[in-house]
């Protein structure tokens, strides 16, 4: 019995070390806030601990992402309740600056990343989760389907819609900037 108990703990710690960065990254890009993302990550891992006996090792990632997404949605809801109007501090996220050859190109890329981060935080669910999982975390459609508990075709359709929403948001912003 003690052996089984020790094994379960070791398996849990292995899963934590393996998936912590993925869950944290998802939460950061979803929420646009590192502190909230830390809370979500901690919460998700503790839930994994509570359900450790019910989850197969192969299904851990899907389960974690699903729980992380729900936790993020809850966090957004709480944030909305607090502020009434959601604002996202994209600076706190630290979106990557593209490696342009000149300072102007760098500044332009940074500018674009900033717009992209804000646009990402504005698109609705479940499109945002699917775009993050596919484009940022580069998960396979099957993995996203498992994590989101959605049929494969639906994932593809939602991804298409999410990308389109991003394009619309960004083209609007860029159009505004050029005018």
């Amino acid at each position: 019995m003690s052996l089984l108990f020790g094994q379960a703990q070791r398996r849990f710690e292995r899963s934590v070390r393996k998936y912590q960065h993925r869950i944290y990254g998802f939460a950061v890009y979803f929420l646009g806030d590192k502190v909230e993302a830390q809370d979500v990550t901690q919460d998700v891992m503790l839930r994994l601990w509570q359900h450790r006996d019910e989850i197969d090792e192969e299904r851990v990632l899907g389960w974690l992402l699903r729980v992380a997404r729900n936790a993020c949605v809850d966090a957004l809801r709480r944030r909305k309740a607090r502020r009434n109007v959601m604002t996202t501090d994209t600076d706190a996220v630290g979106y990557a600056v593209g490696s342009g050859p000149t300072p102007e190109a760098c500044a332009e890329a940074a500018d674009f990343q900033g717009h992209l981060g804000r646009a990402l935080s504005r698109i609705a669910e479940p499109y945002r989760s699917i775009v993050i999982l596919r484009e940022v975390q580069e998960l396979k459609y099957e993995e996203i389907s498992g994590a989101m508990n959605l049929p494969l075709n639906t994932v593809k359709v939602y991804l298409h819609r999410g990308r389109k929403m991003l394009r619309e948001q960004l083209s609007e912003v860029m159009h505004r900037e050029t005018t």
Binding site: Q20, Y24, G25, L46, A96, L116, R163, R167, L170
Partner: peptide
């Protein structure tokens, strides 16, 4: 957009979070 999203860094979870868990 695709390139921008893929260029987003892979963030590392702070060790304190893992240790707390």
């Amino acid at each position: 957009i695709r390139d921008g999203l893929r260029a987003l860094p892979e963030l590392e979870c702070p060790p304190a979070v893992t240790e707390a868990v």
